[in-house]
Simulated scan of single mutants.
Amino acid sequence: MAEAYERFRPGYPAELYDKVTEYAGRPVRTALEIGAGTGKATRLFARPGITVTATEPDVAMLAELRKHVPAGVRTVRAAFEEIRPGRTYGLVYAAAALHWTEPEGRWSRMAALLEPDGVFASCGGPVRLADPAVAEAVRAARAPFLDSDEIPSPDGTPPGYAMQWPGTELQRSEWFTDVQQSVIERRLTMSAGDYIGHLSTISAYLVLPAARREQILDRIARILPGTVGIAADIIVHLARRRGGS
């Protein structure tokens, strides 16, 4: 699965780095990544002058990550809930990983990992078929087994609301201020095989029994054209840890 993540998950554009560092308003020297996976976002932030610590609970993911990131990146095998406070960072970020964290105590834990006025950043978003006809055919093929393959909002915020999760929780949190949401538009083209490979890394399919997952993916593969257009906008949430201890 780690190899599939690396092969089929799209990377992140330089615009994401620019948004985060512009929001910070000062040089970011230290960064902690939550749920780094194979390092798609790690390599975006691991630049000269920034010391990145990448955390990930899966040993195979970390092994794949180490193949692709600069040697100076520190790696720690740990889930978010296992990271012990002590050291603090100028930036803590999660790329398509925050929904895996436990809701209870999420933001107090996050704040404990940040310097006063440090920046939290989260990014993610659904990868959707751009052609409505193809999207409908895939929905119909999937429907007997899976209503949707998108991640539902963890706090129940409906799609289309002006502020999406986790911005909604950040706005309610006593630990954070200056919550901002923005969107980076991204359009991609994939072969049908690569799109199926991408689906195989999506949470909705990963939690299914293996035989059922293969059955659904086979049904979808049979109806896809040779290449598919993808709308994969990145929703970015930024917030600042309130000053003080």
Rank of each mutant, 00 (worst) to 15 (best):
A4D: 15
A4Q: 11
R7L: 15
G11Y: 12
D18G: 02
E22A: 14
L32F: 10
T38H: 06
T38P: 05
R43K: 14
R43T: 13
R47K: 15
P48T: 14
G49S: 06
A54M: 07
A60C: 04
A63Q: 11
V69K: 06
V69D: 02
P85C: 04
V92R: 03
A94D: 00
A96L: 10
H99L: 01
G105I: 00
G105P: 00
W107A: 04
A112S: 15
L113G: 06
L114R: 09
L114K: 11
G118F: 04
C123N: 05
G124E: 04
G125Y: 06
P126T: 08
A130P: 14
A137P: 03
A137V: 03
V138W: 10
V138R: 12
A140G: 01
E150I: 13
P152L: 03
G160E: 09
Q164C: 08
T168P: 04
E169T: 09
F176K: 02
S182P: 04
E185D: 12
E185W: 06
R187F: 07
T189I: 05
G193H: 09
Y195M: 02
I196M: 11
L199F: 11
L206Q: 06
P209F: 09
A210I: 10
A211H: 08
E214P: 05
R219C: 11
G229W: 03
G229L: 03
A231Y: 04
I234T: 05
H237W: 07
H237S: 10
L238H: 02
R241Q: 10
R242T: 03
G243A: 15
S245K: 08
S245V: 10
